[in-house]
């Protein structure tokens, strides 16, 4: 069902929604950009509709809402274990199609990748509803190349134009709320149909790519800062620590913390042994996971083409460019 709701009315609707949900959306954090006098556009909890930023891509992705950067799994004492039990409200996330689609990749890893579901992820994930945002695309957006420009997985869609908010509500439970504030109107989500920059992932990526010298360029360029992975909505690697409290080392907590295949120490073993020491090897591992290995296992691409890895890389390393190179190498091999 579609609705047109005037802005002030929508603010009331939002207020009512907030009573039942924790709402996350893109916001501007003033002066919180890395550089002085710059802002950070990112996801955060919002109190009012006016805080939401509709016209900018967030630097970080919404994954941290369901997969916190640092999460206490349980507390331990000498003879007991305690799980954090705080009961929270359900969660609403305002997101573009690519970001909503990224949850499909997250779900695959956390819920379908082995015999057990990840209970910590599931606990948060099952509380989430999405409100879809329209999108006109940004620099480094590749959603249309991956089909992640479109989604069906949303409870409502909102598009703020001039003095009104145009909505489509799919969630039966929400229809009452929306009809209370707006008049019915024909609304269909607006998606990006073509990206300014594009790539095409080769159908077949041969193992020969592993040893190819193309990766040595990244050994020279990549600094191993890990930004590309922390901003990626589909990177899910984590590590687990037991923290013992300083004043009583018998007490403590077990935490899980994001990890990154681009950063030193990833999958490091006793004696400092690691699988991939060179940044080129790490980049290969990351890129092939995004555009090939995950698909072999789950049948769809992990990468949703949001382009955040490119937005964030201070060395201007481009995923698009890397995929182009792989395509060319594969095409060359086809010919031979």
């Amino acid at each position: 069902m579609g609705y047109k709701i005037y802005r002030e009315k929508f603010a009331d609707l939002f207020h009512e929604l907030r009573a039942s949900y924790e709402i996350y959306a893109p916001v501007t954090k003033k002066d919180k950009g890395m550089y002085s006098d710059t802002d950070l556009i990112t996801y955060d909890k919002v109190e009012s509709f006016t805080e939401i930023v509709f016209d900018k891509k967030t630097f970080f992705s919404p994954k941290e809402i369901v997969f916190p950067i640092r999460q206490t799994l349980f507390y331990f004492t000498e003879d007991s274990v305690l799980e954090p039990t705080k009961l929270e409200k359900d969660i609403v996330i305002f997101a573009r199609a690519c970001d909503i689609n990224s949850f499909r990749s997250l779900d695959a890893i956390f819920l379908q990748n082995g015999p057990y579901e990840d209970p910590y992820y599931k606990k948060l994930r099952q509380r989430v509803k999405f409100i879809l945002l329209p999108c006109d695309g940004f620099e480094n957006c590749y959603c249309a190349c991956l089909g992640t420009n479109i989604t069906d997985n949303y409870s409502a869609y909102v598009d703020v134009r001039d003095d009104a908010v145009y909505c489509k509500v799919k969630d039966a439970y929400w229809k009452g709320l929306w009809s209370k504030y707006g008049e019915e109107s024909e609304v269909e989500p607006r998606y990006v149909s073509k990206n300014e920059n594009t790539f095409e992932i080769p159908q077949k990526i041969n193992n020969s790519i592993f040893e190819h010298q193309m990766w040595s360029e990244y050994t020279n360029r990549c600094t191993g800062c890990g930004r590309c992975t922390v901003v990626c909505p589909t990177c899910t690697c984590f590590t687990v620590h037991d923290i013992r409290y300083d004043d009583n080392s018998k007490y403590g907590e077990r935490r899980r913390v994001w990890a990154s295949c681009q950063i030193d120490g990833f999958t490091e073993m006793a004696g400092g042994h690691g699988y991939r020491h060179k940044q080129g090897e790490r980049t290969r591992f990351r890129v092939l996971h995004k555009i090939s290995d995950f698909k072999k296992r789950f049948g769809f691409q992990m990468c949703v083409g949001c382009g955040r890895c490119e937005d964030a890389c201070q060395e201007y390393i481009s995923l698009k460019n890397c995929i182009h190179k792989i395509s060319e190498i594969m095409a060359e091999e086809e010919k031979v």
Binding site: K29, F59, F60, I69, C225, S260
Partner: peptide, 12 residues
């Protein structure tokens, strides 16, 4: 430290 941090754990 703010410039180095990949996650904005350090902010201004």
């Amino acid at each position: 430290c703010i410039l180095k941090c990949p996650t904005a754990a350090w902010t201004r």
